[in-house]
Write a protein that binds this DNA or RNA. Structure first.
Lengths: 129, 129
DNA sequence: TTTACTGCAAAGCATTTGCAGGGCG
DNA sequence: CGCCCTGCAAATGCTTTGCAGTAAA
């Protein structure tokens, strides 16, 4: 992993590592602006893409189609409601062993994985019958 | 799971179950039309959403933001390249036991899960350094 | 008849692209 | 001096929504 990051990539990465939750590109844009580290929205998107290709950032798509980002080093998965879209974090992950063995049995370079369970949360379950 | 499907939902569901790959909403629209079972695009989207809420259809977002759909009963996961976006199917899944125990330890109703490993495929790995 | 589904067209919105200006080496 | 990064604004494209017509119960 090469260490050369542009100023924009650096800002985005620092923001992500100092944020405790997943955030959207629009959030990154707004928060950098609030910090006085203004970066054009297009540049934010370009920085995210570059960070992803370097294995530094991971992405997950919400049920509404938006993407949320976080450092690739974090390993948290979710239970997500198909009706209201809320995600409930799971704090365990049974997959590191598998990732490790996949990594060593194929030429594919693995940076991170996503695992998500979909269904209905209790309130929505009652409502959707 | 209630069995009442509208005509549109029925057509969409039948198409998905008779298709061997994941397909987009636009594909569903086009293929139904080719079958003489024309359905408006908006109706296709509404049908997909209804089928999801009934636990019949699962969705996955590609790296370009498009969504692909397939029957919820299928359990296939992927190795996806962050650069070229190609997905390589994995034919094993270590998670059914976990899904089962989650299902029984929380009020959340689980319909399906997604598992995806992200990184760089070999050609892109060479290219991205 | 009453409710729910469908089609069409317009609107919405996150993300991407083109291009020109600016910074860094 | 040259290349890459950035910003801005326009374009893209998938998906959603409003509304009126239609089918189903």
């Amino acid at each position: 992993m090469k260490a050369k990051l542009t100023r924009g990539q650096q800002w985005v990465y620092e923001l992500l590592t100092s944020t405790s939750t997943e955030i959207t590109a629009q959030d990154i844009f707004a928060q950098l602006q609030a910090q006085g580290r203004s970066l054009g929205l297009a540049t934010v998107y370009r920085a995210i893409k570059a960070l992803q290709l370097q294995g530094l950032v991971q992405a997950r798509s919400l049920t509404n189609g938006e993407w949320v980002y976080r450092p690739a080093s974090e390993d948290c998965h979710y239970l997500t409601c198909l009706n209201c879209g809320r995600s409930f974090p799971l704090d365990m992950c049974p997959l590191n062993g598998l990732e490790f063995s996949l990594q060593h049995s194929s030429p594919f370079t693995i940076y991170y994985h996503t695992l998500e369970f979909f269904g209905l949360c209790e309130p929505c379950s009652v409502q959707c019958g």
